[in-house]
Write a protein that binds this DNA or RNA. Sequence first.
DNA 1: TAGTTAAAAAAACGTATGATCGTTTAATTG
DNA 2: CAATTAAACGATCATACGTTTTTTTAACTA
Lengths: 222, 222
Amino acid sequence: MARTIGSHGPKTMEAIRKAGLRLIFEHGFAAMSLRQLAAEVGIQSGSLYNHISTKQELLFELVRDHINELLRQLDRALQGKQRPVDKLRAFVAFHVSYHMTRKREVFIANSELRSLEPKNYEAIVALRGAYEARLAEILTEGVAEGEFEVVDVQVATFAILALLTGLTTWYRPGGRLTKEAIVAAHEKLVLSSVAPGPAPDRAQTKRPPSRRVATRGTLERR
Amino acid sequence: MARTIGSHGPKTMEAIRKAGLRLIFEHGFAAMSLRQLAAEVGIQSGSLYNHISTKQELLFELVRDHINELLRQLDRALQGKQRPVDKLRAFVAFHVSYHMTRKREVFIANSELRSLEPKNYEAIVALRGAYEARLAEILTEGVAEGEFEVVDVQVATFAILALLTGLTTWYRPGGRLTKEAIVAAHEKLVLSSVAPGPAPDRAQTKRPPSRRVATRGTLERR
DNA sequence: TAGTTAAAAAAACGTATGATCGTTTAATTG
DNA sequence: CAATTAAACGATCATACGTTTTTTTAACTA
């Protein structure tokens, strides 16, 4: 017995990616074995090599394709928006909605960078940088036009991204809140966080001078 | 040749923890081998078992002790604070300052939950819940006293924690910004994010009705 | 100082891993 | 329909893993 009746390359590849995504999410890249993955797909582990050349390639492509799709859809969501506040709102709505359905990919893209080989790592970091740049651009414009106020654009960019992405750690479909409520909650948080003007109890608090800094800095991600 | 001259249990244990922290951070728990760890410490891999009983125990204790320390110091930072806004500011300042020095622990505590055995996992999740509860409590009080406004306390809690913790992914000592500037940037973001009142351009935006919800929900973490 | 405990080295155990390779069958192509 | 390609099976390779066990030496204790 050899080739299974009904086998079809593209279909098997899809099953591999789907199972890989789940197993890496649940166990981690290193802890997922190819025997485990193959069993999940319904083939023998040696057969995986008809579809992927290495285990590393599977991880790389899962992460890369996720980020590429994210960029594609973000650009679509931002289309036609002119004012920074509209862009930011669209960014938030898109990010939250999209990430509700990509919990696994996001977690893996954050936790498995270290499992990527150097060349792959660099490619992924560059893609992530492109996504971050879009938000930084929105904030920079908003600050320049007086619509936003932040202490530091780069810090705000990373912080807001973290805030928005954090939902993947707790969100589950069918929970207490509707998708719309969650989007609304994040919109309020984010749009308020960069709103010009005082934070609570300015009259009784000492705050650093309000500085509007719109420069890119030397901050690095790990 | 057997016992090395100058060996001292507590000291070796500390070296194991330190090396373990770094290697797990850099490679992941599953990808770090005990031979690698032992080499880093300067002993043979079998000798590790004089100090730890299993590889799993090492991970568990690293994560558990980190969170316990976090809780201890948070409570100290909140001491004497009465008003919600003061508590929140103290929370932010503490969280940001503390996490600047615990980048590795934090990343591991977030990405290696899945590497914990069920019993250990539950213990850690409970500890994390205690930390989250402290922020949720502050927000709830603030909302009840009219100092804060959020769409949903639980969502805001998780979002703010994510925002504050996100710094560990990019912060490096000696970067462009001083520690104080980073704390200030986060304070502005967080305190503004829960500030009562309008987000930018209320006049031109449709927003959901402002609801002050202070209930605990059924949200779950992964 | 003899006995005990601690902590290391060294070797081995039982099991597991990513990947290779040869064979077999199914599907496709001209 | 024969030949080719695709995709699977089954076995194996070379290496690695967490852990155990025995031995050896250092440090401590009474």
